[in-house]
Write a protein that binds this DNA or RNA. Sequence first.
DNA 1: TATTTTTAATTGATCGATCAATCAATAAAA
DNA 2: TTTTATTGATTGATCGATCAATTAAAAATA
Lengths: 211, 211
Amino acid sequence: MPKVGMEPVRRKALVDATLRAVGDHGSLTVTMSEIARHAGVSPALAHHYFGSKEQLVIETIRSLLRQLRADAVAALREATTPRERLSAVIRVNFQAHQFAPETVAAWLAFYSEAQRSESVRRLLVVYARRLNSSLLSSLKQLCPAENAAQIADGAAAMIDGLYLRQGLRSAPVSIESSIALTESYVDAQLAAVAGAALPDAGRRAPVTEKR
Amino acid sequence: MPKVGMEPVRRKALVDATLRAVGDHGSLTVTMSEIARHAGVSPALAHHYFGSKEQLVIETIRSLLRQLRADAVAALREATTPRERLSAVIRVNFQAHQFAPETVAAWLAFYSEAQRSESVRRLLVVYARRLNSSLLSSLKQLCPAENAAQIADGAAAMIDGLYLRQGLRSAPVSIESSIALTESYVDAQLAAVAGAALPDAGRRAPVTEKR
DNA sequence: TATTTTTAATTGATCGATCAATCAATAAAA
DNA sequence: TTTTATTGATTGATCGATCAATTAAAAATA
């Protein structure tokens, strides 16, 4: 029963359905039929609009990334100091809808897919780089560049690791604890750097250069 | 050409082949035929000895876990102080063969599979718990228990995260840097705890309790 | 020792199921 | 009448799994 102008509606529905299906299935082995069912259309229509399953998956990741960026922009708008911006970047990654089990499961599936699909890998690299550079730009205003780079790597790894463990649902570290853990890491590292720069501070600060 | 006593030989060959195949394929979508080819036998033989693909995969994960534990035991034997034991635990996880791209890719695939297979999930939970408790037992001798738990969570997450990023092969953090990053995290956290316990130390130590 | 029987190892052939993808057909809006 | 939206039916390929058949070693029997 063709109503004109359905294309954008269907595309969005299919992308959303893919995220949901991949999310609660936990892998890309979901069938096009299942995705289509979630979206309330026939499998053939999914192919009509996206050409292939791989393309649909790619669009889904793109959409996740767009969402993440939009959230980041919004969060950063309210932050004024570098330290606040840092916290904003951390917080965004643990926002409820990003940290929801299905979303995490979907990310995991995408990471695995990245091993086979170069396009998927490229997209995830974009995400990884963006996270690093968001952290880095704030950190560089809080400590020397070389320390900043190291702290950014550590924080990014910790964030990704907390995701991974969230995906396993074994020892569920809550959203708040995840944020606290990451914040605490950043705080301690910054303190260590500051301590090393001010050796008169009474006590030896922990070293960070172990390279 | 039946030679008696082949079973253990074939089982090992098939398990090794599975790890390799899953590793460079990057996912569990490898076919039994491919695994069997890696092992130099027919697909039918793989079914003969393991019954199903799922069972073969499970045995493969078990084997990975065994290896990891053996490495850990060996590394711990040479450590005497709590701090040395802590370093040993960290180091083991970044050993060359554990941190090799194919191994990391295999781990990733298993994590993804854990979303669907309860048995796989259970095994990975065992790994996660073991990592946590190894870290924890050393940490508890270096700081109060509540701080220890937090630091263990953070370190475990960071280790897993470094694996994840290694899997992406985007901004490759080297083995040495990965170890250094994790060590630095532990050092700084312990220093922060110590600093908070000795408030006369001239400068306020960074807070860790953000819960 | 010689012969037969049992057991272990191994595979080729094949079945059945699943699934992505295609396509021709239909229905209604423009 | 052309275009857009939509689907049911179908195809072709892939893959896990099964099974009967084969080979040779080991064990039992004569």
